[in-house]
């Protein structure tokens, strides 16, 4: 009888404690996933790759972002890119979409393509065999390369602070600063949050 009562008295506190632990674990896991960056390239290409099928700007810097057409995290990247484009209208923008056999729909019909092409001045293009990504050394969707008119790499990495979270962050602010010339300090080791581009 006493044991049963003891059990009854323990069930609720124990259950509440377990519940709180589970919640803590769940939110921690969620945060860990959101803050887990993509793979960093082993070697960062610091100069404009020769033979890159993209025309580099002779004036303002040129920004190239590689994207997985179905990556949900990259929507935040394009949101930030829109903010960057609005801040520096002279910036030459390229969105390079990688192609895969198992995509559920045509790239041109994807939500990400529509979002990208809606950005003023952005040039969307398809990297049919992944050559551009390979030349740039990009491993993750949403990875950005910013080159000066001389072909010098100014920025390398993602422009969001976590997966799928848009909003002002030091990375996107750095791109704006470098693009506008207010900063000259290259940022070459910024983490990227997005899907893997690996084939």
């Amino acid at each position: 009888m006493r044991f049963q009562k003891l059990v009854q008295n323990l069930v609720i506190p124990t259950g509440i404690a377990l519940w709180l632990v589970a919640l803590g674990f769940g939110f921690h896991r969620l945060a860990a996933y959101s803050l887990r960056p993509g793979e960093t390239p082993a070697v960062i290409v610091t100069d404009w790759p020769a033979g890159l099928p993209i025309e580099r700007s002779s004036g303002p810097p040129t920004l190239i972002v590689t994207l997985h057409p179905e990556c949900p995290c990259s929507k935040a990247t394009l949101t930030e890119l829109q903010r960057i484009a609005a801040s520096t209208p002279s910036l030459r923008l390229y969105a390079v979409f990688e192609t895969y056999d198992a995509l559920p729909e045509e790239i041109h019909g994807s939500a990400l393509w529509r979002q990208a092409t809606a950005i003023q001045g952005l040039n969307a293009m398809i990297d049919a065999e992944g050559k551009i990504a390979a030349q740039l050394g990009n491993k993750t969707s949403g990875e950005v390369r910013l080159f000066s008119s001389q072909g010098t790499l100014l920025f390398s990495g993602g422009i969001t602070a976590s997966r799928g979270h848009s909003g002002e962050n030091p990375a996107s602010d750095a791109v704006i600063a470098l693009a506008s010339g207010s900063s000259t300090t290259p940022q070459l080791h910024v983490p990227t949050f997005g899907c893997v581009l690996d084939r």
């Binding site: 997985h68 179905e70 990556c71 899907c195 690996d198 084939r199």
Partner: peptide
Amino acid sequence: WISPRTWIGGVS
């Protein structure tokens, strides 16, 4: 709706 699948290259 927002993020049904995550992709690793051509695999989701």
